[in-house]
Amino acid sequence: MRKLIEDILYDRRKDAVTLPLRFVLRFFASVYNYVTSIRNFLYNKRILKAKDVPCRVISIGNLIVGGTGKTPVTMMTAKMLKEAGKSVVVISRGYKGQSKDPIVVSDGSSVLVSSIECGDEPHIIASSLQGVPVVVGRDRFAAAMMAYKRFKPDVIVLDDAMQHRRIYRNVDIITMDADNPLGTEYLLPHGLFRESPYSIRRAKAVVITRLTDEHNRERIERMVRYYNRNVLIFWSTNVAVGLREPGSSDKTGLDAVKGKKIAALSNIANPLSFYRLLESLGYTIVFKQVMPDHHRYTFAELDYIEKNSLKAGAELLIMTAKDERNFPADYNVKIIEKRVLDIEAVIVEEIEEYMKIIAPGIKK
């Protein structure tokens, strides 16, 4: 059933088998659209009022479910602000984390909790950004106020907060995957939209992520400008910054495994971008294992994956940082050598213009 629903969500099947379920999901999508539209109307007219935090707030979010590269863009934005001399705190929901109350993941100098407590993506952010505290909380306003009282930041960067309108933000930035900028045409639960694509009108900027030479930039820009003619559009790509052993922070050069046969493991929403990056580095992929987004691995699954990687002729198993965070805490089996590929998002042009959006008055 899950596979069938995913096929409908991603518009992969339009046949007699899916027709009845499509009809039901389309009805619920209409109800969902009605509810979200009324909610947005109430916020737009300030009948429902967003709550202020006493510092600048930047929201990085998206309009569709699944991965659009929000977390790398959040990290890139926080890093740019810090390098420009601003004190920054990142706030995240902490998706799939066990903590229900706001908690400090990092105080800027050390990571204080496990990925099980805070969720995999906040843990990645906390481990990657030195000097930037990270706080998670399902109530983003409560988390932001806690962060402000403790750290007194100049800027708070909200990770995945486009739909969390209860907290006021100075800037909304939407991320869109260059592979599939606007998903399918329907709202949840029939399609991928979390809210109407016309919500792009609330955004100050759109960042197109995971850009490659294969993407048609003019086509993507037309799609975006259909909903907001004046929005600023920036283009970003993911770059590999090093390989390391799971659990270690010591990176090795990317050329160390060039020419080797590898297995690729990914529990991210868009594994194709991961494969492209590996192949661009000159790695030969002989085995691929795709798991659901944020999947937590079991010992049995990892045993199967490692053994089948060897059987396919792989000399090395390369995974994402999100995979690493979802291994069992006491997993130390070494059937095959494993490495984590760390990545960063970078704006490919008009960096100064992006700085004007996130920190007016500061030149990069």
Rank of each mutant, 00 (worst) to 15 (best):
D120S: 09
E121F: 12
G131M: 09
D120C: 05
I124P: 08
V111N: 01
A126V: 00
V136R: 03
S110L: 12
S110T: 13
I174H: 00
L112A: 00
G137M: 03
I124D: 02
S115L: 09
V157R: 12
D172M: 11
S114N: 04
I116Y: 14
H164G: 10
K152A: 14
G119V: 06
D154V: 06
D159E: 11
I116D: 14
V134L: 04
A147S: 07
H123R: 10
A178S: 15
L158D: 06
P133A: 11
R150Q: 11
D107V: 00
I124F: 07
A143K: 02
K149Q: 15
D154G: 01
A144M: 05
P122N: 04
G119P: 04
F151H: 14
G108F: 03
L158I: 02
I116A: 15
Q130D: 14
R138S: 12
G131H: 04
A161T: 08
G137D: 02
A178Q: 02
D159K: 14
G131Y: 11
G131K: 04
H164L: 04
D159W: 09
E117A: 04
H123N: 08
E121Y: 03
S114A: 12
R150A: 07
P122G: 10
D177W: 03
N180T: 10
A161R: 02
G131N: 07
P181Y: 05
A142V: 12
V113H: 00
A178E: 09
A161V: 08
G131I: 08
P133S: 08
N170D: 15
P181K: 10
V157P: 05
L129Y: 07
S128V: 03
R169H: 11
N180K: 15
N180P: 03
R150L: 12
H164D: 13
P122T: 00
I173A: 13
D120Q: 06
D179A: 13
D179F: 12
I173H: 13
A126M: 00
D160H: 10
F151C: 03
V135K: 01
D107P: 01
R138T: 08
G119C: 03
I174F: 03
N170S: 14
E121N: 06
